[in-house]
Structures are given as structure tokens and as C-alpha cells.
């Protein structure tokens, strides 16, 4: 039987090893940098659609992390999502006419808030609000628009379009794609040849 003293020092070592392990888990594995919020200021931005944005999602300027999302609430009167961003006080010279957008990291990654700086000489401070925001792009909506465009253009291709349909299409496109203009121009171009190709294949099959 070991003496009580030896046992106690072994237990002490054991405890020390466990504390070291916990510290490693905290700082190396979960990347916990501080238990408290870093000093900074809160700004808010309201979005029509925040997609998969969550509390603690990163806030970036030009890809560099400047803060995190601290709260997300729904405005009860306008039905917009009001996102509060906690920005590190080191980055206190962000122009107040900058715009905030919700982007996706990678093809299927998490959402984050990207701030695009503008040229104003006054800066964002605690409590200020972004005037210009860009909502998250929802993949389902984009696909929906694409299919809508494709079906419209295929109608055009098969039957000569009636003049009543054309203006209707234009208005929906312009109202829906205020922020996603590049997508709207790309979609019909890439869409039309794709849809015509299978048609020729089908006819070939029938001939054979």
C-alpha cells in the first residue's frame, strides 16, 4: 500500500493533467479566445431575409473577421429581421454609408455578414444602422427564378410569343432581382441552349 502522501501527489498530478486537458480542449480545440465579449460597438442592419445566419456568425470586411452577430430579432411592424452586429473596437473607422450583405462561405457553407466599405468621412458608431443591405441569396428562390425564366423562354422558342406576355415577365424580373442583377442576366443565356439540346436528342431517338 502506498503512503497517503504518495497517493495524494498522484491525485494532484491527475488533477493537473485533467486541467491541462480541459485548457487544451478550450483553447486549441474549440478556439475559445476569451470568456468575455471583446470591447466593441453594436450596429444594426435590417434584412428582408437572413437565410441561415445565426447568432455568433462572423462579420467580415474584405474577408477579414471584424466582429460577430450578437442578436437576431424580427421587427414586428416591418417584418424585417433586425441583426445586431458586435464589431471589435479596433475597427472603428468603418464609413457610415457602407452596405451590409449576407453571403455564403463556399457553395454550401455557413452564412456570414460582409460589410462593403464606402467613402463617407463619418464612421459607424454604437447604435448606428446600415442604410443599404443585401439579403441572403436563397438557393431555392434562385432555382425557382431560373425555372420560371426557362419555361418562359421555351414558350418563346416554341410558339411565337404574344405581346401581352412580354411586359409581364419584365416587371417580375425587375422587381425580384434588385440585388441579384448579374444572376438575372446570366440565367436566360445559359438556360436556352440547355433546354433545346435534349429536344434534339429526343427526336433523334424517335427516328432510330
Amino acid at each position: 500500500m502506498l503512503s497517503q502522501r504518495t497517493i495524494e501527489s498522484f491525485v494532484g498530478l491527475f488533477l493537473l493533467a485533467a486541467i491541462m486537458a480541459l485548457l487544451l480542449l478550450a483553447f486549441k480545440v474549440s478556439g475559445l479566445t476569451s470568456f468575455f465579449k471583446p470591447a466593441g460597438y453594436d450596429v444594426s442592419a435590417s434584412f428582408d431575409d437572413i437565410g441561415q445566419l445565426k447568432v455568433r456568425s462572423p462579420v467580415k470586411v474584405g474577408g477579414v473577421l471584424v466582429g460577430e452577430v450578437s442578436s437576431i430579432v424580427l421587427d414586428p411592424s416591418t417584418f424585417k429581421a433586425v441583426v445586431t452586429l458586435h464589431i471589435n473596437s479596433r475597427f472603428n473607422e468603418i464609413p457610415d454609408d457602407s452596405s451590409a450583405g449576407i453571403l455564403t462561405a463556399g457553395l454550401l457553407g455557413d452564412n456570414y455578414v460582409a460589410i462593403t466599405p464606402m467613402y463617407s468621412q463619418t464612421f459607424l458608431k454604437n447604435g448606428s444602422e446600415f442604410q443599404e443591405t443585401h439579403s441572403a441569396m436563397i438557393l431555392e428562390k434562385l432555382i425557382g427564378q431560373l425555372i420560371y425564366k426557362l419555361s418562359n423562354s421555351s414558350d418563346k422558342a416554341t410558339a411565337s410569343t404574344s405581346s401581352t406576355e412580354k411586359p409581364a415577365e419584365n416587371t417580375t424580373a425587375s422587381s425580384e432581382n434588385k440585388t441579384e442583377k448579374p444572376k438575372a442576366t446570366i440565367a436566360p443565356v445559359s438556360g436556352t441552349p440547355k433546354l433545346e439540346k435534349p429536344k434534339t436528342e429526343v427526336t433523334l431517338h424517335e427516328n432510330n
Binding site: 493533467a17 485533467a18 491541462m20 486537458a21 480541459l22 487544451l24 480542449l25 480545440v29
Partner: peptide, 13 residues
């Protein structure tokens, strides 16, 4: 038990 788990986690990682 919790101490052993912390050590297990770290060693496994």
C-alpha cells in the same frame, strides 16, 4: 469520471 473524460478527449484528438 469527468477528469478521465477530459484526458480521453484530448488524447483522442
Amino acid at each position: 469520471m469527468p477528469l478521465l473524460t477530459m484526458i480521453f478527449n484530448t488524447v483522442a484528438i
